[in-house]
């Protein structure tokens, strides 16, 4: 693995994205607009918006990064560029790292815009700091990204790649505590929820919301999400094969 090639790869992926102006606008604007919509819906219940809007700040970039990466990587696999890269000095981890940096930058930009809109304009209120919220949101979206990288190996077409979203992403959103409190779910569902990384991102956010202290529990929850990133990255890199049949 070479840091130089990792950054070259990240630069190439970012340049590809920048050449697609419409995608850039969608990446930057859509999560902020959706959060504004939620805020308008919950106009009479600011406490509700503080809870839901905050979670959406992490969940939206998570979903979008999953979709973007699964499709970009799926293209790379089927268009022959992956095979071509495997004959160059590019190591597998250079490619995965390049994707992580490029989409991490996108996630940071997206979260930055959405968080600025939510805090400054929509009066989102948390006891803890907005920076901590942004950090949790970025780590969560990087998790979405590596998950996308991983599923691209199991998708033969872009059409299939998109359809992995209801399989891998939607259950995590339903069970993470966004639409229904976890404590009120059946025991076995709580068990499933405990096994899903997004749950810990939400738990970490809820702690930032409730307390201005950076608790050990919050770091522990964020650590679990970061651990899931590492596991999915290793699995994703393992699906990149230099030699194929």
């Amino acid at each position: 693995m070479s840091l130089r090639i990792t950054f070259i790869t990240a630069g190439r992926i970012l340049r590809q994205l920048l050449n697609d102006r419409r995608t850039v606008v969608l990446i930057l604007a859509v999560p902020a607009l959706i959060i504004a919509l939620i805020s308008a819906i919950m106009e009479d219940s600011p406490q509700m918006f503080d809870r839901v809007g905050l979670i959406l700040l992490a969940v939206f970039p998570f979903v979008i990064m999953f979709l973007l990466t699964s499709i970009t990587m799926q293209r790379e696999r089927t268009a022959g560029t992956l095979e071509r890269l495997m004959t160059t000095p590019t190591a597998k981890m250079d490619l995965v790292g390049g994707y992580a940096i490029a989409f991490g930058v996108c996630a940071a930009a997206q979260t930055g815009v959405a968080a600025a809109v939510a805090y400054l304009w929509l009066d989102l209120d948390t006891v803890g700091s907005a920076w901590m919220v942004a950090l949790i949101a970025i780590v969560t979206s990087v998790f979405g990204m590596v998950l996308g990288l991983l599923v691209s190996a199991f998708a033969a077409t872009e059409f299939q790649a998109v359809q992995f979203m209801p399989v891998l992403i939607v259950p995590q959103i339903f069970l993470c505590g966004l639409i229904w409190p976890r404590e009120e779910m059946a025991g076995w569902l709580q068990g499933v929820s405990d096994a899903l990384p997004l749950t810990y991102a939400v738990k970490a956010l809820q702690q930032v919301q409730a307390s201005s202290d950076l608790t050990a529990e919050m770091w522990g929850d964020l650590g679990i999400v970061a651990g899931a990133v590492v596991v999915a990255t290793v699995l994703g890199a393992a699906t990149l094969r230099r030699r194929t049949g």
């Binding site: 190439r12 340049r15 590809q16 050449n19 697609d20 268009a79 022959g80 071509r84 004959t87 160059t88």
Partner: peptide
């Protein structure tokens, strides 16, 4: 990997990048 180069049958280039990039 820096001494052997491969030109694939279907051009392995990125459609959303310029020739130069």
């Amino acid at each position: 990997r820096g001494r052997v180069a491969y030109v694939t049958q279907d051009a392995a280039i990125y459609p959303d990048l310029s020739v130069k990039s």
